[in-house]
Computed example of a mutant assay.
Amino acid sequence: MNNKKIIGRLESIALPDLAIGDLQVRVDTGAKTSSLHVDNIQKVVKKGKPLVKFDIHPDVHNVDKVVSCIAPICDIRKVKSSNGEAEQRYVIETLCELGDEQWMIEISLTDRSDMNYLMLFGREAIGKRFLVDPSKVFINSQTNDEIKV
């Protein structure tokens, strides 16, 4: 247990495969899979492989900025959201960077427009790498930790 890093209830991650850097996420040990707010989700097939196309607005302060992404579908799962409703979601696997750590995580794609953060960082992403200190924010991030939340 001594080799685990501490993360706060909010962190900033990068998803380099999706060309996303400095994405503020809410760490949620109650959520099994991480989830990301995306728009314009479309399933496409290229060379016989199922892919999902989607748009991300990574900067909540500049909604005009749009990053269009395409990723292989690793699964389609029924996910129960915090409001108790279940929905089928596309799940992708992508590289995640937090501090000096890099590893692959699964992310379900959904509409989180009514939530405060574009992404929930779930317990499968946290894995055996981190312990969560809910009294802290942006411990391992480049983001200013003086932001009040």
Results as ranks from 00 to 15, higher is better:
Ser82Ala: 11
Glu93Val: 10
Arg112Pro: 07
Met1Asn: 11
Ile70Lys: 13
Ser113Cys: 04
Gln102Pro: 06
Ile147Glu: 13
Glu124Thr: 15
Val132His: 06
Ile56Gln: 06
Val79Thr: 05
Ile92Pro: 01
Ser141Thr: 07
Met1Lys: 06
Glu93Gly: 12
Val149Asn: 14
Thr110Ala: 10
Gly48Asn: 00
Lys78Pro: 12
Phe121Lys: 02
Ile147Pro: 04
Ile126Val: 14
Ile13Trp: 00
Thr33Arg: 07
Leu118Asp: 14
Glu146Ile: 03
Ser113Lys: 12
Met115Gly: 00
Asn40Cys: 10
Gly21Met: 10
Ile13Glu: 07
Phe121Trp: 09
Ile41Tyr: 04
Ala19Ser: 14
Lys65Gly: 06
Glu101Val: 06
Val63Ile: 13
Lys148Gly: 07
Thr143Leu: 14
Glu97Asp: 14
Ile7Phe: 01
Ile92Phe: 00
Ala31Lys: 05
Phe54Thr: 03
Gly127Thr: 07
His61Phe: 13
Val27Ile: 13
Ala71Lys: 12
Lys46Pro: 02
Ile7Tyr: 04
Ser35Val: 05
Leu118Ala: 14
Leu36Glu: 09
Asp17Arg: 11
Ser82Cys: 02
Ser81Gly: 14
Gly99Met: 02
Ala31Pro: 14
Leu18Met: 14
Ile73Lys: 08
Cys74Phe: 10
Ile20Asp: 04
Lys148Leu: 12
Ser35Ile: 08
Thr143Asp: 03
Thr110Tyr: 06
Ala14Tyr: 11
Gly127His: 01
Ser82Glu: 13
Glu11Pro: 03
Leu95Gly: 11
Tyr117Leu: 15
Met1Pro: 13
Lys148Pro: 04
Val27Met: 06
Ile41Val: 15
Lys32Ala: 00
Trp103Pro: 00
Leu18Cys: 10
Pro50Lys: 05
Pro72Cys: 05
Gln42Ser: 14
Ala125Cys: 00
Arg77Gly: 07
Ser141Cys: 03
Ser108Cys: 00
Leu95Thr: 10
Asn62Val: 12
Val45Phe: 10
Arg26Pro: 06
Val27Lys: 03
Ile70Gln: 15
Pro50Asn: 08
Val79Ala: 04
Asn140Pro: 01
Ser81His: 12
Glu124Asn: 15
Asp145Ala: 10
Lys4Ile: 05
Lys4Met: 03
Arg89Pro: 07
Gln142His: 13
Ile41Ser: 06
Ser68Gly: 08
Asn140Trp: 08
Lys78Met: 14
Glu85Ile: 11
Lys65Val: 13
Asp133Met: 04
Ala125Val: 04
Leu15Asn: 08
